[in-house]
């Protein structure tokens, strides 16, 4: 006995011939029944169709799910209720048991079956709107807070970095490129050497060549400069290359 095939044939032909209407089917195949018995993939198809349709009605539901799927997944008594109602109406009669209330076929089976079904949809529906506002409120304030904080930090770093450019500029570069830091310094010094060497003072050249090391040498260099530059200070102050050399040296660390 292939009762499902019989159901499909009977119900399909009833719908095709106008013996039954989709509303008659949905009267028995209620959303609760579908929620209990219809597989999730078919639910996904049904939801997709409902979302894309301008109007959701019984015809859309029945056509989307399809009679074969209804007969396959729903209890036979429910499908039979649809067929029985169609047959009774075609004869001008009414099947009291099936026609009276929609949940009758369900109520004839187990009473607890429909009850657990009814709560879940409302819970999901009620929980959705309740859950929606809190995230909105939480997202609003939370977004600007870190953004302003981060921007403030960046701005403060930039502002503080400019005055203390040599300190902060060298520190990160030395941390990132420790091995190449000395090399970079030497490269920078070697690049600037021609400019320094172009200057008249040979002391400058020596000092720049050893600037990487420490301040002790600069102190050593400075002392002889003071003695020598008394007559040359004016020329050095007017010379932009010498100042650029000092500035460029500090810039080298920042650029790197």
């Amino acid at each position: 006995m292939n009762i499902k095939a019989f159901f499909v044939e009977a119900l399909t032909s009833a719908l095709d011939l106008g013996i039954a209407r989709p509303e008659d089917v949905v009267k028995h195949v209620t959303p609760d029944v579908l929620a209990q018995h219809l597989p999730r993939p078919l639910w996904a198809r049904l939801l997709t169709a409902c979302l894309g349709a301008p109007r959701v009605d019984a015809q859309l539901i029945v056509e989307t799910i399809g009679v074969p799927n209804l007969a396959e997944h729903l209890p036979a008594t429910i499908i039979w209720a649809c067929i029985a109602e169609a047959g009774a109406r075609s004869l001008g009669k009414q099947v009291d048991v099936h026609v009276a209330p929609a949940p009758l076929p369900v109520s004839t089976r187990p009473t607890p079956a429909p009850q657990p079904l009814t709560p879940p949809p409302p819970e999901v529906i009620t929980s959705m709107p309740k859950a929606t506002p809190p995230p909105m409120a939480a997202v609003g304030p939370s977004i600007p807070a870190p953004a302003t904080g981060a921007l403030a930090d960046v701005i403060s770093e930039l502002e503080t970095a400019e005055p203390s450019a040599p300190v902060r500029g060298r520190t990160p570069t030395s941390q990132r490129f420790r091995q190449s830091n000395t090399g970079i310094g030497r490269l920078g010094a070697s690049q600037r050497r021609p400019q320094a060497s172009a200057t008249p003072s040979p002391l400058r050249t020596q000092r720049r060549g050893s600037t990487e090391v420490t301040d002790t040498e600069s102190a050593e260099v400075v002392s002889p400069e003071i003695a020598v530059d008394d007559s040359q200070l004016v020329d050095w102050s007017t010379n932009e290359n010498t100042h650029a050399g000092d500035d460029d040296f500090s810039d080298l660390g920042r650029k790197r």
Binding site: M1, N2, I3, A5, F6, E9, A10, S13, A14, L17, G18, I19, I83, A86, G87, S90
Partner: peptide, 19 residues
């Protein structure tokens, strides 16, 4: 005619599916 057609299909299906 539609009702007649439907009953014919149902009876035929019932026989074929051994209902």
């Amino acid at each position: 005619d539609q009702r007649q057609q439907w009953f014919a299909r149902v009876v035929e299906s019932g026989l074929q599916n051994q209902i």
